[in-house]
């Protein structure tokens, strides 16, 4: 009986242990599931689901009611499902050249602003990388600091500078360079200034991160092999900083294209940008289906640059 009993106990033990083990494993895997699930479902509900609703409403018809659009899915008598999909809103956007012009203008303004940010940001990032360690930290902090202060107030600061009787005009008149104030506020020029001013740190930081990683020996190697500073820049530095240029440009271009505050405060009624049109369509005209359609089209315009950005981000984390 002895050995048999012992065998039985061992078997029991094994079973209990395997049960406990399974339970622990389950708990552990569930612990991971919880860590993922909370942010995952939050984003699913509050980030992804809303887009489906925007899409749905963009296909509805505007009516005077609360909410001011027709339901997309109606349960008719007998349970027959009738779906009313109206592309009217999109056709409306295409036919009215006001919207087409606004989209094109948004792309033009944010494109040119991105280029200006690059022209200013690239040498600044390069200068920061080349500075001595102590200076480098101070310069970096100076670039990041405006980012922490209110965006709205920084845009407001330019209203005071650019106004007809603002600081710049006052200064120019005082210097005797002009007699009449130049109209700068409420123009495309002011919008360019505002976008470059607000977004240039977004250009500098990815460029800095990119350049900082480059081995200084690469520049020295080029010089050693006979390349003068300009050739070194064109054959080594520039090609190796393309990822930074792309990341920085997208970080400026995408939000700038949908910008609302800057065209509204600095551009006034004279500058057409899609973010502002959308805001007005929604808040002033209460045409929600058209506003939704405007949003969907804007999203389609920006989806390609966003995917490029995503691609570069994921490649960066893989490195």
């Amino acid at each position: 009986m002895g050995p048999l009993q012992r065998g039985g106990v061992t078997k029991m033990n094994t079973r209990v242990f395997s049960y406990i083990n399974a339970w622990i494993t389950k708990l552990q895997s569930r612990w991971q599931t919880i860590v993922i699930a909370i942010p995952f479902y939050w984003l699913l509900l509050f980030f992804l689901a809303p887009f489906a609703i925007v899409l749905k409403i963009s296909l509805a018809e505007s009516i005077i009611a609360i909410p001011p659009f027709t339901p997309l899915i109606n349960f008719a008598e007998g349970g027959v499902l009738t779906i009313r999909i109206l592309f009217d809103n999109f056709i409306f956007l295409m036919e009215d050249d006001f919207y087409v012009k606004t989209y094109l203008n948004s792309i033009k303004i944010s494109g040119i602003s991105t280029l200006l940010c690059l022209l200013l940001g690239y040498p600044m990032a390069y200068g920061i990388v080349r500075a001595s360690p102590a200076t480098k930290n101070i310069l970096l902090m100076m670039v990041i600091l405006p980012f922490w202060t209110s965006f709205l107030l920084r845009v407001y600061a330019w209203m005071g500078l650019l106004a007809d009787r603002g600081t710049i005009n006052n200064l120019l008149i005082w210097l005797g360079m002009i007699d009449e104030p130049i109209r700068m506020l409420y123009s495309e020029f002011a919008v360019y200034i505002g976008i470059v001013y607000s977004y240039v740190p977004f250009m500098i930081l990815p460029l800095y991160a990119n350049m900082e990683k480059l081995d200084t020996a690469l520049h020295e190697a080029a010089a050693d092999l006979g390349a003068n500073p300009i050739t070194t820049f064109l054959t080594v530095t520039l090609p190796l900083t393309i990822p930074g240029i792309i990341a920085g440009s997208l970080l400026v271009f995408i939000p700038a294209a949908g910008e609302f505050v800057i065209p509204d405060l600095l551009g006034g009624g004279n500058v057409l940008m899609i973010g502002r049109v959308l805001y007005n369509e929604f808040n002033s005209n209460h045409d929600w289906p058209v506003a939704s359609a405007v949003a969907i089209v804007l999203l389609l315009v920006l989806v390609l640059p966003m995917m490029v950005y995503q691609y570069y981000q994921s490649r960066k984390t893989e490195d």
Partner: peptide, 9 residues
């Protein structure tokens, strides 16, 4: 010069 890190482009 041959660099310590090789500095290959």
């Amino acid at each position: 010069m041959m660099f310590q890190s090789y500095a290959l482009f």
